[in-house]
Each structure stands twice: as C-alpha cells, then as structure tokens.
Design a protein around this nucleic acid. Structure first.
Lengths: 249, 249
DNA sequence: ACAAACATTGCAAAATATTGCATCAATATT
DNA sequence: AATATTGATGCAATATTTTGCAATGTTTGT
C-alpha cells in the first residue's frame, strides 16, 4: 500500500469522525503505530491536520478538545444545515457566526449562490474560497487560538458597519424567558453585534439546548426569526415559540 | 507495445483505481519496473499524475490548501527567513505582510518568542496558531480569493490603528531612485499602510528584484531599515544602499 | 508520586530510486 | 548497402527512503 493511500485514509477518517487514533489506524492500515505517527507528522507539516497526543484532529476544528466529541452529532447538524440553506437567496448579505454549525452550512452551500458573506471564522472563510460568486468580508480582530475566530472590539467595530439580511447564529442556549445566551463572554459580545447588524436571525439549536441558559446574555428570544432544530417532537416547545412569532423548523 | 499505449494504460488505471503500483504495471505491461518508473516520471512532468514512491496517484487539482505552495522554491527563501528572524525580539509588535516570504518567516518562528503579530494573511495567522506566546491581530476586510489575504479600505483602516516596531515586507521591487514598488494596486495600498504604521521596515528581496520597478509606488527606498537578500555578491548594490543608511544582509 | 500511555531517537533491514552503462532496434546519413 | 545516430530498454551498482523495533524520555491521569 502506498504511503499516499494511507494519507488518504487518514484524512478521510478525519473528515468523518473529526478525530483519528494511532491504534485504530495502525490496525486499519496494517502498519506499526510508528509509521502512522510519522504519517501524521508529515500531514501535519503540510497543514492538513493537527497532530495531537494519541492521534490527530482536523487542523482548524471547533473550540473544544476532540476527545469529548461525539460523531453522530454531525449527521444531525447536517440536517439542520440543509434546512438553513433554504432561507438563503441570491444577492443577500449573510453573517455567519463562528461555530461548527455555521461551518456545516458553509460546507453545504450551493456553488452557484451569489451572496455576500460576513464572518469572523477562518474555517468558514476558507471553505468559501471555492465559491466563485461568494464575496467574503472577514472581520478582523484578535485571533482566538484553537477556534480560529476573531473576537474583541475590532471585530465588533467591523461588524457594526453592516446591515445584513440574515444572520446565521450558531448553537446557543435558548430560553423563552431568559433569552438567547452563550457560555463565553467575548464570543457572546460578538454574537450580539452580529444580531444588531442583521434584519433576520436564524438560530441553529440542537434540541437539548432549548430551554436552557448560559451565563452571558445575547438577545431576547423575540429577536429571532427562525429557530432550526432537530427534534420537532416537542409540541409544547413548538407552540411556545410560535406564539412569539418565531418559525420553528 | 508503444510507449504511448503504456501511457494510456497507466492513466486509465489511475482513473479507475486512484492509484497504480510499479510492480502491477510492470507485470501488466511486460516491461521492467525501471521503464514504468520512467513512464511515470514523464507523465508526472506533464502534470498528468503525481509520482510517489512505489507508484503514482492522480494529480490533486482540488482545493489548493493555502499551505501547499510553500514547499518548493523553499531553500533560498528559507535562508532569508532565518536572517529576518534575528531582528525579532520579545515584546515587539510585528506586522507581517501577506507574501510567501513572510510566511516562511512565520513558519520558522521560534515557539517561545513572545511577540504580537499583525497580519492580513490567513496562512500566516494559521501558522501561528501553535505559537502559544504569539498574539495574532488579524486585519479584516475583503478576502482576496486564491491568495488568502484581505485587502481594501477595511484592511487599511485596521492597520492604521497600530504603531508597530517592525514591518516584515515581502518581496517587492526595490530601486534606488524609484523606491519600493509592487505589481498590484490594492496590495500596494495595503503595504503602504503597513509601512506607515511601523517604525522599522525590513524588506525581503531576492537579488533579481533589486534595481527593478513595478507599476505601483509603495514608499521611498530610504524608508527601509534593512534589506535582506540572497546574493551578497553585488558589491555595488551593497554600497548603493549602505549610503542610504540601509543595512544589507 | 507513580504507573501507564505515548513520544522521540537511533538503528538496521527492506523497499524503492537513481545513475551509469550496455544492448538493441529503428531511422537517418554517408 | 554500410554505417552512424538516436531513443528506448533492461541491468547492476549505489544512494535514498521507508519501516519496524528497541531503548530512552515525556506526558497524563490517578
């Protein structure tokens, strides 16, 4: 088996699972762990992934460490992403927030859509490179290591200059009374500004984030136009938000 | 069997299997592995496939991840990069311009250097992720596809906010009378701003760029503090610039 | 602080590349 | 017709790269 084949396998698994282990690859590829380690090192040198103790993770992953990630999240989020896409139209200015959910949307974006994207996320900007008709405006600022988003007053100042049609808000906690909240102060600041600069807000939320709250306030629930979630099951939840004029998907 | 026939077989199998082995082709084509190797080399020179140890794989035309391009003409630039590093000290604020030379410097940056980096280049920001003690301030703006730098008035506005110690200026043309010039209008605008925001300018230039000029003016030659170049040969050039108080390396 | 897991380094064997050279066939030249 | 010339090919000797292993550090979790 060629070294390049191994590389391909490693990268493929990385895309699917967001992580690879030395032991697993060693067994799968029929080579020693040493070899896998060397392969990973080589790929890391090329910037195609990030080598970590015991394995590797994608080079620009989300903010959290990979060991506590669950891969089945991905499928659910993918469905959410596709729903969100249906709200985007040619000519719009869209703000993408920096989370992994927004990233999946960027990934699924049709190549012929002509929109202007404003974002503070490297991975998203990077994904949109191949989209010929998408203009990317990147918000500068202090770079948050490990998550590849910019934050801080410069970012906020940049975002204030826009009047976007839609803001795709990554996963936050949403609570009917307590509003939309997030776990990190500076990130929440940025999100708040994104919301202020947008006409419509589309929030992406896995079901377990509904009716929960975090430390930092972002905006009142009524400000949302659409909530896209994965479990339509909760009739009550559906009603609750519909009463506020929010469309549930 | 004609060489062209073999070529066709090789390319066909490559399309089908995404890989070919020397041994397999040698048996299939009834020629020695040496010949297959030579065939593959020839096809590789034409850019039709990528030669790898033990066989060949399709030439990846896909999304050129921005780090790929660093690898080739590396050596000469690498020497330049190392020279440049000796000018950087803990605590400084350094502006990195977006070229590949600046990228090599970023790559060679010692992990324990504590500096603040201001840049408009994704690749550079991305390279610095692993540098624990480097703070990265990223200049927002319109994203230039294919080169992954931001440009435009937002970028300039961002850069104006700084007073940096050093600006590492990628390769431009330098001419004693005509000053520093660049081939692209908007990029030159950005570079000019970087220079205005910096106390000292270190310019990186391969020897063939000295005493040449491009369309867009960036700054007078005297504004440079140091020129780092690869061929110390030219005694005259050395003198010419030394008279202006510029250090040549 | 300890053990276990993991990483790093040096090393030798195996696989693969490279180089120089001799052969051969096809074509060009005398 | 005889003889160079050229280019492709295979072979062998010599590098170079890859790989697994073992000995030795380093990190992590308890």
């Amino acid at each position: 088996m060629l070294k390049e084949e191994r590389f391909k396998v490693i990268l493929d698994r990385l895309v699917n699972d967001q992580k690879v282990y030395l032991a697993g690859l060693s067994a799968l590829l029929n080579v020693s762990e040493d070899t896998v380690r060397r392969d990973i090192k080589e790929l890391a040198d090329q910037g195609l992934l990030k080598s970590v103790r015991g394995g590797a993770v994608p080079h620009a992953p989300g903010p959290h460490h990979f060991r506590d990630r669950i891969s089945h999240d991905k499928d659910q989020k993918q469905i959410i992403a596709n729903k969100a896409l249906s709200f985007l139209k040619d000519g719009q200015v869209v703000i993408f927030d920096g989370g992994t959910s927004a990233m999946l949307i960027a990934q699924a974006l049709p190549k012929d859509l002509r929109i202007t994207v404003v974002t503070n996320s490297f991975p998203i900007a990077s994904l949109l490179e191949e989209h010929e008709f998408v203009e990317v405006l990147f918000a500068g600022g202090r770079l948050l290591k490990n998550s590849f988003v910019t934050i801080g007053s410069d970012t906020i100042q940049f975002l204030k200059k826009f009047r976007a049609d839609i803001c795709l808000l990554g996963i936050c906690s949403i609570h009917k009374e307590l509003g939309v909240t997030g776990p990190d102060y500076e990130e929440s600041e940025v999100k708040r500004t994104m919301i202020q600069s947008s006409r419509e807000i589309i929030a992406l939320a896995t079901a377990e984030k509904l009716e929960t709250a975090e430390a930092f306030y972002i905006c009142p629930t009524e400000r949302l136009s659409v909530i896209i979630t994965d479990q339509p099951g909760g009739q009550e939840a559906f009603k609750t938000y519909s009463e506020l004029g929010i469309q549930m998907v």
